[in-house]
Simulated scan of single mutants.
Amino acid sequence: MSNPPKVHKFKSLKSLATRLRSDVRDIDCVLVYAYNRTGKTRLSTAFKDAGKKIGKDGQVKSRDTLYFNAFTEDLFVWNNDLDNDTDRYLKINEASSFFEGLRSLALEVDIKGYLSRYADFDFDIDYSKWTVSFRKGADDKIKISRGEERIFIWCLFVAICDRVVAGLDSYSWVKHLYIDDPVSSLDDNNAIAIACDLAALIRRAATRQDDKGEPAPLRTVFSSHHSLFFNVMCSEMGRTQEGQQKVSTKRYFLHRPDADGTFTLRATNDTPYFHHVATLAELQRCVKEDKLYTYHFNALRSILEKTASFLGHDDLRICLAGLDDEALYNRALNLLSHGKYDITQPVEMVDDNKDLFRRILSDVLDRFKFAVPDLAPAEPAKKATP
């Protein structure tokens, strides 16, 4: 039996970012899977900050990372024309280094090329005012949905990346791409399409050559909580067609087992089996520590629904069939998992519900024999990386 992958423990995002930077010295692409609220966005920022050089005057003298994360979206702010409800547009924060040289790049054609794959609206960029307006058919200056807005920003980012890979002077400072969760608002069809396009971009970045034909690769870190998107990315990055150069990758599961800021990083070649079983491990830990909150019923129900789907059924009741308390468990999961619980302000379960939750989880684990991972080191942990 092979030894389980080693779990690396870090006391801060800064030390974790240092580890990822060490990885991409020799690896073309590092793929990180972690569920929401683990700290992926802050990790991408820590990685970016580690590549900055600050002068004595406090100004940034150089940097090396072009990144896409939640902050990228914040570079665009809606003007909804609340008075007349007609002149609606996105305002671009032109002061950001993200848009360096954007005016001279003439990216509209490239953006539209990508956008046409995912959406059916069009846009116009006014560089004199640094605004973007949208139109569909005969309607102009329309308000697009949050998902459509995210798709547009993503298409703009990919169009910039194309120019970075091409070696454009405006972005010659870029040595790393860091892409965090570009699909959180997208449906599965768009997630698959974007994953395939992103994998192709990363492959081009990894195999880039300079003017003399010498290797000049861009290294990429990609992180996501979206299991389908992560799975497609791993599959695409691991596939090498005839005539293609192999792209080296490393895959991790990122976990934050405690609330004290400690992080664990575990290498895995599975894609991404941790998505559901890591949630089970988290639920087990919450049971053990008696930290059970109302939204944990939602998490357990989601696991059972996906398990039922994997077994070819469309109803989670198949997972509970034959258990001694089958009727009670079904009723509890239906009633207690439909609340709109805010995980940022969790409400602790009452004692009766805690006991019921423990029983359901225990019986489910006994029935399906999930190989639930130990997300903390099996032996006493060595001193964490400072």
Rank of each mutant, 00 (worst) to 15 (best):
183 V>F: 07
163 R>W: 08
217 P>E: 04
199 A>M: 11
205 A>P: 04
165 V>S: 04
214 E>K: 10
219 R>E: 01
190 N>V: 13
161 C>W: 13
194 I>M: 12
217 P>A: 04
217 P>I: 05
183 V>Y: 12
221 V>K: 01
184 S>N: 08
174 V>K: 00
165 V>Y: 00
189 N>R: 15
173 W>Q: 03
203 R>K: 03
161 C>H: 12
175 K>M: 11
200 A>N: 13
178 Y>H: 07
201 L>E: 07
172 S>Q: 14
222 F>N: 05
192 I>W: 09
193 A>D: 09
197 D>G: 03
207 T>E: 01
178 Y>R: 01
183 V>R: 09
175 K>F: 02
192 I>D: 06
192 I>N: 10
202 I>V: 12
158 V>N: 08
158 V>P: 09
212 K>M: 07
160 I>K: 11
214 E>S: 10
212 K>I: 11
166 A>L: 12
194 I>W: 05
180 D>F: 01
163 R>A: 07
184 S>Q: 02
215 P>R: 03
213 G>W: 02
222 F>D: 00
220 T>F: 12
159 A>F: 11
190 N>C: 11
164 V>P: 13
209 Q>P: 01
214 E>M: 04
168 L>T: 15
180 D>I: 01
210 D>W: 00
218 L>I: 13
172 S>H: 13
182 P>G: 01
200 A>L: 11
174 V>D: 01
207 T>G: 05
200 A>Y: 15
